[in-house]
Amino acid sequence: MAGEFVMLSLVPILIGVLAAVACALPGNFLVLRRQALIGDAISHVVLPGIVVGFLLSGTVSSWAMMAGAAGAAVVAVLLIELIRRLGRIEPGAAMGVAFTALFAFGVLLLEQSDTSSVHLDVQHALYGNLESLIWVEAKGWNSLFDPVALAGLPPELGRIAIVALVMLLFTLVFWRPLKISTFDEDFARVLGMRTNLIGFGLVIMAAIAAVAAFDAVGSIIVIAMFICPPAAARLMTNRLETQVLWSVAFAVFSAVMGYVLAGYGPLWLGGDDAVSAAGMIATVSGLVLGLAALYGPHRKCRGAPTDR
């Protein structure tokens, strides 16, 4: 039983947790900057980048795809600016045009190119392949200390672990510039902070998190993980420090509960098949947000000062 869990479920759960945390950390700032949809946009626009990265490098799991995706994110940001300036329309509309167009382009590329031999198709792009990231070499908990078995760990785990660590370091090291420029950009500039660079860096970080998560869990979970845990966390507290901790807790909870419910929930209900783990993780994080919106202690803080 333990052997089966370690082999089939441990790695997917870990990857789900790390992906969720990696997205939630930058997601906090995106939500507060009213840029939450940038996470959504990124998870769409990275698709053509990933496909191009794959076509150029010839492998699915390589840093080339990550570079391609990051490149696509940069192209998207520039495209949004271009459409906004040339078309003189609001950023939301420019974003909508840019990310649907790039996503469509990615799907076309995917269909036209010969990716049938590898695990890269439209379904993978949406749901990821969390359930397939099993640890074949594992025989039980002892395998955690067995170098031979550890060498057989799916490479996605190491990749998402590094990215989650990068997100953590980024958040810790640039905490003050991120916080101040998110709250009061003009003031940050007067202090001499390069606010454009900070904003751009945040988007790049979000793109890296999106791509790493996308690789393992698909774009549905990426969208949910950028927005749901941070938004729910905002309703639990009035301090940014506490909010980020809550968002990590919600991300971990959603990933674990989502995976368990997807794998075992249908069996408990008398069914005989599992449902998509990515879909269930996104569902749980949505439910968490719903509960926070209904019962969170700080959900009524908007506007309305007491004595104006």
């Binding site: 916080k179 003031f187 009035n238 301090r239």
Partner: peptide, 23 residues
Amino acid sequence: VDWDFPTRVIDVVLMGLVRELGL
């Protein structure tokens, strides 16, 4: 600025010291 930002009065004032505090 957005006054719904999750922060306390004292934290806003401490932002004035950030040039000293650095990263």
